[in-house]
Every structure is written in C-alpha cells, then in structure tokens.
Amino acid sequence: MNASTMIGTHVDVRDLVVEFGKRTALDGVDLQLDTGVHGLLGPNGAGKTTLMRVLATVARSTSGSVSLLDHDLSKQRDLRMVRRRLGYLPQQFGYYPRFTVREFVEYFAWLKEMTPSAVPLAVDHAIERVGLADRADDRLKKLSGGMLRRAGIAQAIVNDPDVLLLDEPTAGLDPEQRVEFRELLRTIGVDSCVLVATHLVEDVAVACTHVTVVSDGRAVFRGTPDDLVAAGEDTSDGDSPIERGYTAAIRAARKR
C-alpha cells in the first residue's frame, strides 16, 4: 500500500500574499483545487507566475497559508514528501543542450527520488506519453521548440505527479500538437490536479474543467469555462464567447 494517500484537497491556498520588496505580486489569493484540469488565466503581470512558483515550492509566501496534498508548505519536514509528488514546468525552463531527451527526463526522475528500479520504465512511459518515443535519444539541442516543450512536459510527469503545474505549456506548440497536448492534459487530470497558467483563453475553453482568473494579484473569478462564458454575455469585446467572459471578469474586478 502506498502510504501517501490523497484524500483531502490537492491545493489549498488561503489569503496568500507575496511581496517582493515594496511591490505586492499576490494580494490575498484564495484557491482550492482538486483533481481535474484547472486553468489559471490572467494578463501578463497579474501574478500567475508568482502563484505557480509558490505552489511549485520554489518561492516563499509573505503571509497566508499554502498546503499541497494536505501538507503545510511552511513545514520543512513535509516539503520533501510534497515535492516527490509534484510536477512543474516553468515558462522558461532551462535544459542541457547536450543531454538526450532520455537523459534529461531521467535526470529529473532521480531528482524526484524515485525508486531506482522504477526509473527506466517511468522515463520510457513519460517520453511515450508526450509523443517523443522516436526522438528519445536525440540531443535536446537538435529538437524544435515544440519538441523541447514536450520534453519539458515529460520531465514534469515522469513521477506521475499528484499535482502538476504547467506555466504557459502550449508556447511553441503547433496547432496539431496543441490538440494532442490538451488530450494528454485531460488524461492526467482524471486522477491528479493539473494547474495550467496561460494567457490563451482558447486553451482553457477546450482543455479545462475549471477556471480561475487572476488580475492584479487577486483571484477575481472562479468557476467552470461555461460560467466564464456566461459572465461575458453583456459585453461585445472579444472574438469568442469565453474571451468576452474573460474580458468582463477582468473589467468587473478593476472597477471595484
């Protein structure tokens, strides 16, 4: 039996504040997420990346509470447990050009402290899931932007994470890859919590079960993509119904 069982909320953020010097990046965010694919929408500079970094355990909060998988992130003892079950792909992810796809994914499998005997199969599985099986032994410097992004996703899912954080994951993917990627996201979201930060409203409309809109460091909208569409019925700004909803949510928040 696996000792680390998930029963409560995957992500539980209460009144999260993050300040850099005098600047407030997040100003009292509340967020509760369970299994499923969750979209995090917002204009550039709204605080999406900061929120992702706090959830990825690489940045610390100024105040408020953050717990992942029922572990309080402020407790150092719990941090290690949480990190083993986390997957993270930052927007700008560094890579080692001379590594092959397989070595790159394997590197993170080891860093995530996976069982040695499980590593080769997990690496193979992750590479297969992102559709890079035939390029597994190519060096990263030989890959296109879209393929690199997929290698990044492979490292994020190699440990079959309970919480998967992807910051602008569709950047560099062509339309066909984007469709495949959304399919993969839905599959992962069946039994884990996927949070996708994006500025592309269409990604959210197609792939996500829930949406959170962030603006000026606050969560200004939470609901399903349909709810967001409904929020935009009275405006005409935007090319699609969900885009109108997004614009309306941001405007309503700014008026307050």
Partner: peptide
C-alpha cells in the same frame, strides 16, 4: 548558471544533497 535551476528547486533531491 544552471539552466534548469527553477525546476531543480522544486524537486526533493535538488537542495543541499545535490
């Protein structure tokens, strides 16, 4: 200098051990 530091920092094995 380590390009992947952001992801490494999110892993359990990426801190003092590494």
């Amino acid at each position: 200098l380590d390009d992947a530091h952001e992801v490494i920092a999110s892993t359990p094995g990426g801190g003092i051990r590494l």
